[in-house]
Structures are given as structure tokens and as C-alpha cells.
Design a protein around this nucleic acid. Structure first.
Lengths: 107, 107
DNA sequence: GGGATCGATAACCTGATGGCTATGATTGAC
DNA sequence: GTCAATCATAGCCATCAGGTTATCGATCCC
């Protein structure tokens, strides 16, 4: 059972897919057609990528007639930010431990 | 030509590999043997993962006799942090644009 | 209704990747 | 020198992921 970090990292690991997400972040809501036009891959490929992004919670879709509009859900990046600061935190606390050790050695 | 973001995301996308990195962040420098013991995969698999992490700049290796000690290089996470805040920035500026628009409509 | 457009799904193919076992290269112990 | 230990590399295999074309469902236009 993959956790939230797994899903996020794996989803963002593909360049094409990440480019789609970046574009939605930069330019806001876009239709599948608009996204396809600039993606360099076929429309079904884009649809599949958007599906993966949606499952990861990174985008929302909104249906309007024949068109589907996708938009980025920035909040979904939270676990990624958490993970990063957690890693930094571990690092820091190990550094603190070292500092403590050195202090005690100093006495 | 994959950029820094590509390499980082793809490297951290694999759960086994990310677990190795997390462990090095938490517990500091470790030998390949120690890492293998807790990884659930074979020693060659661990070595391969460590090689990938090293190519991504996420770990350093230090040779000491027969043993190889690996340690996390937290600085390598910088592009990931940059990317995340860039996405947040795009989001924010689009929000600002919207605010501007609403303000101008208000006049 | 009939045809065109838009997007999702199906079916398939291929390359990349992560795992394994086997072995090689170095170093340490005796 | 010999054997054991540690890690890296080689070679192989199975799975998966991303791409394609073909097609379907739904909507719009006439």
C-alpha cells in the first residue's frame, strides 16, 4: 500500500506529467485540448496523465459541455513539503545531538 | 537531457530507494551492510540504489577498508524545495492577478 | 436526425527499471 | 599465503509505465 509520499513522488517523476502540472500552476485552468496542443504527446496520453494527476489529488476536473477543464490543486503538495522539512529536521536534530555531545565533552 | 528536477523526482520515486535516503537522514552515516540488513532487498539491490542516489547527489560515499559508508547530502534537496515554492509562487501570482482584476472591476 | 468535435477508454507495444543470482575485486584476519 | 568478509558489477528476467492507434460516448451545430 503506497503512502502519500509514494504517490506524489511517482506522479511528479514523469517529465511530461510534471510539465502538465506546472502549466496548470502557471496558467490556471485549461482544457484537455489546450494542454494537448503544447504537450508534444497525443491526446489520449494527456488524458491518461491527467487521470494520474487527479488520482494523486494534484488536479481537479470540471466538465462543461464537451470540454473538461483541469486545474491544479496546490494543497496536494503539502505532504511533499512535509517530507522535505522532516528530512531537514532529522538532519538538524542529528546535528544538535553532535553539538550536545561536543558540549558534554567540553566540560 | 533530464534536468535537476527530473533526476530528483525520479530518484526519490522508488519506495525502497527513498527509504534508504530517509534512514540516512534519520540515523546518519551507515555502511552498505547495515543498510542492507533493514532494507528487505538483496545487497546488490541496495548497492544499485545507493549508486542512483549518489548520481543524484543525494548521498556521499566514504571508503574505509572493505566497508563503504554512505551519508545523506541534504543540500541536494534544494531544487525540490525551489520547485515547490515556484509552483506555490505561480499560484499566488495568479491569485494576485485575479485580485487586481477584481479591484479594477470594482472601480 | 446526421455529422463533427472533444475527451475518455481499450488494446497493444516497447523500453526502462527494479529485483535476483553469480561473480569479481579489495581488504582484513589468521 | 589462504580464507573470509564486504561491496560493486555483470547478466538475466519479469513487471510496469508511457506511448501509440482505434474507438466509444457525449455534446454541439446545422
Amino acid at each position: 500500500m503506497p503512502n502519500a509520499h509514494d504517490v506524489l513522488f511517482r506522479t511528479l517523476a514523469d517529465p511530461t506529467r510534471r510539465a502538465l502540472f506546472e502549466r496548470l500552476c502557471r496558467e490556471g485552468e485549461q482544457t484537455v485540448g489546450a494542454l494537448t496542443a503544447q504537450s508534444g504527446v497525443s491526446q489520449p496520453a494527456v488524458s491518461k496523465h491527467l487521470g494520474v494527476l487527479r488520482l494523486a489529488g494534484l488536479v481537479r476536473d470540471r466538465h462543461e459541455g464537451r470540454q473538461t477543464h483541469y486545474s491544479a490543486q496546490l494543497g496536494a503538495l503539502a505532504p511533499l513539503i512535509d517530507w522535505t522539512s522532516q528530512m531537514a529536521g532529522f538532519w538538524q536534530s542529528r546535528f544538535d545531538d553532535l553539538e550536545d555531545l561536543l558540549k558534554r565533552m567540553d566540560q
